[in-house]
Simulated assay, not measured.
Amino acid sequence: MPGPSYLTLTRRRFLFSSGAAAGVFALPKVLLGAEPANSAVVALAFAGDALLAARSDLIRSDDGGSSWTALPVPAAVLALATHPERPGRIIAGLASGGVALSEDGGRTWEGLSRGLAEGEVDAVAIAAGQPDMIYATVRGDGLWKSEDAGQSWSLAMDRPWLKDAERELLALASVDLLTGMGGIWIYAGTEKGLTRVPDCLCRWQDVQPGNAMDALVSGDAPSSVAPLPTGEPVHALVSAPSAPETLYAALPSGIWTSSDAGATWSHAADGFVTAVAVHPADPDHIVASLDGGLMQSRDGGINWSALAAI
């Protein structure tokens, strides 16, 4: 279904001026001390065993959250992505300036916005099995992709049409499933729930059980058994790299988990959640920003403990 008429005015704002060319930023590490403890965490990610947390800045812990180091970036960070096959690589979605890339764990950064639409980058993801394929969502625009680690960008998909309107893409996850066209799906959290598209980038669709490519062709309705709640924004969404069918989602109603690639969901924790991350080697090790604090679970969300305040 076509989007509203203003879409042609917003989607094509993608050519930056010459001042938006890629740049390199050398960023010294600063010990965290004076930042307020109640700064909202908007994104979390594991970089190996290290934990990254984005507020208005980016901070890193190498000791399980006991202490933190600040890693300033060119602009406020809205989203983070890492990849187990590229140690040290961090992708940051920025409130201004598009996307930034670090190849050294956040010590230095390169701005990668040439050809990307202008606007806040609310979500980023690195394709499972293809660490140079990067996806980014631009607020008011749609899904963009880069096949060369951010050196160039192209529009991949418009925003999905859900609940009688075109919806913002708030979260992204690349999910390695045999039912994808080549084994990869792009899952997206929106203002109204969950959607996904195979890596053919042909059509947004509901998450369904069974052979999802058959469902894409047939147009079957999704299962009504224990779906992720609709009508709530999905603030964050992650797939466990070591167990791709294990997903975690952050909603205002709490943390939700799925063990069947998003066909059915269970409630793992109550509270207002803004971010969630899963360890690359342990699908049961998750960290979430829950009711303003950082919480950790080692058993897939059954039991939780608080991490040190940041």
Rank of each mutant, 00 (worst) to 15 (best):
G65I: 08
E147W: 01
L71S: 11
P160E: 07
C200Q: 13
Y187L: 07
S67I: 01
L58N: 03
S266M: 05
P72G: 11
L162C: 00
L31K: 10
D104K: 02
I302G: 00
R167V: 10
L177N: 05
S56Y: 08
L9H: 11
N38E: 14
G48W: 09
A100R: 03
I255A: 02
S102R: 05
P131E: 07
S305D: 13
A268S: 15
G210Y: 04
F46W: 07
W153L: 04
I59S: 13
D57M: 09
A50Q: 12
P160Q: 05
E103M: 08
G210I: 04
T195C: 13
K145R: 15
G140H: 04
G33T: 06
N38I: 06
N303M: 00
G301Q: 03
P131I: 05
R12W: 15
A79W: 06
L237Q: 09
G301R: 01
S289M: 05
C202N: 10
A47V: 05
F16V: 07
A123P: 04
L162K: 05
A261Y: 07
D176G: 00
L228G: 02
S18H: 04
P229E: 09
W109A: 02
A100I: 04
L169V: 14
L216E: 12
V238P: 05
E110K: 10
F46Q: 06
W204Q: 02
A136W: 04
G105A: 12
G142V: 05
S39C: 00
R86G: 01
W265D: 04
A100H: 06
G106K: 08
A43S: 08
Q208T: 15
A215I: 01
D57W: 06
A277M: 10
R298T: 12
P283N: 07
S305T: 15
A309N: 10
A79V: 09
N38M: 07
D282N: 15
G48Q: 06
V207S: 09
W204P: 01
K145E: 05
K192H: 11
S17K: 09
A53P: 09
S17H: 12
G64R: 07
V278H: 08
Y6M: 07
G129Q: 06
L307N: 06
E245R: 15
A288D: 03
M157A: 11
C200T: 15
D260F: 09
S224H: 05
K29N: 06
A243C: 03
G115I: 02
A53W: 08
G3H: 10
L294V: 09
A37L: 14
P209A: 10
Q208P: 00
E245G: 08
G97W: 07
A20L: 11
V99R: 00
A20C: 10
A215H: 14
A26K: 10
A288Y: 01
